[in-house]
Amino acid sequence: MNGPIDTNSWQYRQINARAPGLSYLANALIDLVEEGYPVVAGTADLQYSNGLVRFAQRFPERFTQFGISEQNMVSAAAGMASTGAMPFVATFASFLALLCCEQIRTDVAYSALPVRLIGHHAGISLGFYGTSHHATEDLAIMRSIADLTVVAPADGPQLAAAVKASVNHAQPIYFRIGRGQEPVVYDDGVDFQFGKAIVHGEGSDLTIIACGSMVHPSREAYRALRAAGKSVGLIDMHTVKPLDTKAVLSAAAHSRFVLTIEEHNILGGLGGAVAEILAEAGSPARLIRHGIRDEYSLIAPPTHLYKHYRLDAAGIEATVLEALG
C-alpha cells in the first residue's frame, strides 16, 4: 500500500511548519537504521499526522502503509518482531489503546515481542475531533497490561532519546506522545532511562509529578510558584510503568502534598499509579490528582480545553495555591 511521497504536498509542508516535534520520531528512526538496527515502521493512514512520511521517504522498503486497519497493523508488527525486526507502528492514541487493546495484550505483550507502539495526538490534543479521538483512558488501559512498558515523553528531544534507548529494552513499549506542537523542555541529546524520573527540584510544601505534555506547563507553574516564595518541587515522571517508586516516596517524605498532573482521566493513569505507591508505603503525604475528573472531554480547540480543565500553567499554579490554602 506504499506509494511515492510528494514532498511538495500540503500535508508534507504542514508537518514541517506546524508540528516540528513530530520530526524527532522519524529522525530518530532514521538514525537507528543508519546505525545498523533492523528498524521498520508502519502507520494506519496517518504518515503525515505523525511525521513518519520522513522515514518513508528515506527508507520506503522499511515502511508499511497499513491503511485504516489499526488492529491488523499491531498484529503484523508482532509478526515482524517475531522474525527479528524492530517494528515501530503509530496511529492516534485513542485508536491504538482502545481499538487495538486485544492485539496489544495478546499478540504483543503476552507473546513478549519487542514492538514499539506510538500513540500520538494523545489526551485532548485533537480538540474539535471530539470524544472518539480523545485519548483520556489510554494510560489506565496500557499500564494494566502485563509486561508492557508505558512512556509519556515531554517533548520531541525526550521522545527521540526514549526511542533510541528502546533498542536495549527487551519489553514492548507504549509511547504516548502529543501532536508535535508541544513546547520544548529539554535540549537535544537529553539523557533518558526507562523507569528513572527526572527531578527538576524539591519542595517542602508540595511536589508536582507530571508526565508527557503536562511537564512544560507544570514547569512554568513551578517557576512562578518558586519565584513567589513557595517551596515547590517538580518531577518529570516520563515512565508511567514501571514507575520510579524511589522518586515518588522521596517526594512524599519531603513534601506535605503530592500533586499529579496528567492530560488523562484522574482514574487509573499517573495519579492512580502514584496513589498505589503512597498507599502501599503508608505515606502521610496528601495526594491530589489533577486532570480530567472522570468525564468525557468536551469538544473545543486544544488551547481552550487546557484552560477549561486547568491543565495550562495558570490552572496548575492556581491548583497548587488552592492546595496550600
Rank of each mutant, 00 (worst) to 15 (best):
V39W: 08
V40N: 10
T43C: 14
T43E: 08
D45I: 08
L46F: 08
L46V: 15
L46Y: 10
Y48K: 04
Y48L: 08
S49M: 05
N50H: 10
G51T: 06
L52N: 01
V53K: 14
V53G: 03
R54S: 02
A56H: 11
A56F: 06
R58N: 01
F59I: 06
P60A: 09
R62N: 04
R62L: 09
R62G: 01
T64C: 07
T64E: 02
T64L: 10
T64M: 12
F66N: 04
F66Y: 15
I68G: 00
S69M: 13
E70G: 06
N72Y: 11
N72E: 08
M73R: 11
V74C: 04
S75Q: 07
A77K: 05
A77F: 12
A78Y: 05
G79D: 05
G79E: 02
G79N: 06
A81C: 13
S82F: 12
G84F: 14
G84W: 14
A85P: 00
A85E: 11
P87V: 11
F88M: 01
F88A: 01
V89L: 09
V89Q: 05
V89F: 14
F92Y: 14
F92M: 09
A93C: 14
S94M: 04
S94H: 02
S94L: 01
F95L: 06
C100K: 07
C101V: 13
Q103I: 12
D107W: 12
D107Q: 10
A109G: 05
A109L: 08
Y110W: 14
Y110S: 07
S111D: 07
A112Q: 15
P114G: 13
P114H: 09
L117R: 12
I118P: 00
I118C: 02
H121W: 14
A122Q: 02
A122H: 01
A122W: 03
G123K: 02
G123F: 01
S125V: 13
S125Y: 04
L126A: 13
G127K: 01
F128S: 08
F128I: 15
F128V: 15
F128D: 12
F128E: 15
G130L: 03
S132N: 12
S132Y: 09
H134E: 00
D138A: 00
M142S: 02
M142Q: 08
M142L: 13
R143G: 05
L148H: 04
L148T: 06
T149E: 05
V150Y: 00
V151W: 08
A152R: 05
P153E: 07
A154S: 15
A154W: 02
A154I: 08
D155N: 03
D155S: 10
